[in-house]
């Protein structure tokens, strides 16, 4: 029986090989690293803009 909640479907339900994604970070990483995704990071030049890391 499949759950109806998006969160359960994405991160909790075992589809036979574990949940679809471990957590939201893994999902977002997949969305921006999958070449067929609209969010693929090479599809725009955002990486060229400022992105400063503060320790």
């Amino acid at each position: 029986m499949l759950p109806k909640s998006a969160l359960e479907l994405l991160f909790e339900h075992d589809f036979g090989n574990g949940p679809l994604f471990k957590n939201q970070i893994e999902l977002v990483n997949e969305l921006i690293s999958n070449i067929r995704s609209s969010y693929y990071q090479d599809n725009d030049d955002s990486i060229e803009y400022t992105r400063l890391l503060v320790d």
Binding site: I25, V28, Y39, D44, S46, I47
Partner: peptide, 9 residues
């Protein structure tokens, strides 16, 4: 870091 990239997008 992902939010930073998505912000610009």
């Amino acid at each position: 870091e992902q939010t930073c990239e998505l912000f610009w997008r």
